[in-house]
Design a protein around this nucleic acid. Structure first.
Lengths: 349, 349
DNA sequence: GCTAGCACCCAAAACGGTTTGTAAAAAACG
DNA sequence: CGTTTTTTACAAACCGTTTTGGGTGCTAGC
């Protein structure tokens, strides 16, 4: 009977060879035994498993990845998330929920989720391009990230299309148009007659589509569009300026309904309105496109769309996984339908 | 409809051999040329670079990782982040800022950041254990994640210690005690005499240390401790119950100062106090341990500690990188000092 | 007794790079 | 002109797995 002495472990973590040596078999057999792949006698497999556990062997994910050229890793690229400064301001709520949900959805499918700022920028770590598939949320116009991924044949799905290249890649269609109409119609139902739009200045599909939808909706309704754009990054600060724009001396017809695309703009406007003696909802019905925490707890609370970032994330992850595994897409390529959270700002007593 | 065929044919990713063949040199020379490692004639190097760019060659991060057994990948494990349900409730602000800052800090050092829920749970993807180093925020008592990382000799740093195993691993010491005293002293300075504590029910170091600090502080001051604990997950909802607990008929001496460990508890209490005719700050001085957005914009706004999650993340990443690269730690192993954001709730006119 | 079939295991070839050691050609030297 | 040195490029080994394609010995069938 041969006795296998405890292996004096070479410096570093034990490899499959160490296990093989300690168990008196070949690396092939160890691999087969541990993965249940080939034909290995039960007795042998048990012994290998025991030895492997004893010497604390864990297969190297990197080496495994080399074989399959897959790491079980997804990446989420949130494009508006360019720096810490702009990280917080923009729709905290939305992207936080999205990132959290995406991470969990990925894990449920056996993947990890990597948060990446911009894999194309110089000095980006090699690992930034190591994901099996990418989710790019809110791509910019002619987004270089999409270009790079496409060139390298790395699978990806974008949430919302590249404004300059719609339909060119795999994308989760957003419902910007439909959502805009939903909000506008709600304002009408709530009693508004002259409804204005407050958009952001970023060049993304959300801003563009919403504005187009608003214009079309106005035309349909025989109303003159009234649109103002303020930078997303300024958040609540735009309140006074926005009030001046819509209710100042220089403004024409004053709106009695307002749809703000971002929740933080709405929050700023909500506060500024109060200070200028404009009562919400009595004088002005207010709704926001993407909800922020502020809108839920402000006085009055503000009606917002809930875009269901968890649902979007789950669907995006599903698409990404199918792309990564090269199986045909079975997921509807559109985001789930948004709902309207009706709050005090659009309820007249 | 949607075109994605140009993405799925990833079978043809160019390798270093393709470049070598196209440039008429050996793979060795290509590697040397592109990495500036060996001695290659400038002319040859230029030609190789050109050819590589033409056929769109990018080295495989996985293959590169095999050599060094490092991927340039860090992982952030936020322990309280166990499910989506508990994701939002607990200190949105804090963990959001932390995750964002950690991702950016990692990128600046040439690493990517992976968000991992729990690498020990069954079915976790291989990639969940592929990071070069881990940051574990707020470990649980006898946290299995720390145990696993330790067993596998994977470098990690925890933010806050495992309550059952303090000082056993590399950890960023928190300043719970010091921060508690800072807040309590501020309440005294602001005019409070009988100060109560409202803690959470989670078994983490933050709750434990803070309570101990409070008790010690009371003893020093000759005051009887007055402590209530409410579940973190209930957030603002605890408001009425907390008011009943501290100001109801059954309660003894009513406090005129209150330190809430979590911002959301403070927000709920703040709102409930108003409804019960308890004026903040006139009747009750209120401060919170971790700030939430609500505390900044509520009426009155609430004084909170700013724990500076960005600073914590930056420091944790620095430690993680040094651990990953096996260089001696040069970072102070403690979190940066918290500051107090004094707001309306502790300013009596 | 010979062969086909089977169960079990293993050597070698990937996977896609980097690193090491060495050979060939060119340049410098005596 | 022979010898040494320098320059430049390459072949081979290696990183830690999985996969491929045998090979061995035993059993069953004829």
């Amino acid at each position: 009977m041969t006795r296998y002495s405890d292996q004096v472990q070479s410096s570093g973590r034990p490899t499959i060879k160490d296990v093989a040596k300690a168990a008196g078999v070949s690396p092939t057999t160890v691999s087969h035994a541990l993965n249940g792949k080939g034909v290995v006698r039960q007795e042998t497999a048990d012994r290998i498993a025991l030895v492997a556990a004893q010497i604390g062997y864990r297969p190297s994910p990197i080496a495994q990845g080399l074989q399959s050229s897959r790491l079980g890793l997804l990446a989420l690229v949130i494009r508006p998330l360019r720096s810490l400064d702009t990280f917080l301001p923009e729709g905290v709520d939305y992207f936080l929920r999205m990132a959290g949900a995406a991470s969990l959805a990925a894990m449920e499918r056996g993947y990890s989720m990597m948060l990446v700022d911009d894999p194309t920028r110089p000095g980006a770590p090699v690992s930034a391009t190591a994901a099996d598939a990418y989710i790019v949320s809110e791509p910019f116009e002619n987004d270089p990230v999409l270009t790079m991924l496409s060139e390298r044949h790395i699978p990806f799905v974008s949430v919302g299309s590249d404004p300059a290249r719609p339909g060119r890649f795999v994308e989760l269609a957003t419902r910007d148009w439909e959502e805009t109409v939903l909000a506008l119609d709600h304002l009408v139902d709530a009693g508004a007659e002259r409804i204005a739009l407050l958009t952001g200045t970023d060049e993304n599909a959300w801003n563009r589509e919403s504005e187009a939808a608003y214009r079309s909706w106005c035309e349909h309704r025989g109303q003159v569009p009234d649109i103002a754009a303020f930078p997303e990054a300024e958040g609540e600060q735009i309140g006074p300026a926005a009030i001046e724009r819509f209710f100042g001396a220089a403004s024409g017809t004053r709106p009695d309904g307002l749809f703000c695309l971002t929740g933080r703009h709405a929050a700023g406007l909500n506060a500024a309105a109060r200070e200028h003696g404009i009562r919400v909802p009595d004088d002005l019905l207010l709704a926001a496109g993407s909800g922020a925490l502020q809108n839920r707890i402000s006085r009055p609370s503000v009606t917002t769309l809930d875009l269901h970032p968890e649902g979007i994330a789950a669907r995006a992850v599903e698409v990404a996984v199918q792309l990564a595994e090269g199986i045909p897409l079975t997921v509807p390529l559109e985001v789930p339908r948004a709902t309207l959270d009706v709050r005090e700002s659009t309820i007249r007593k």
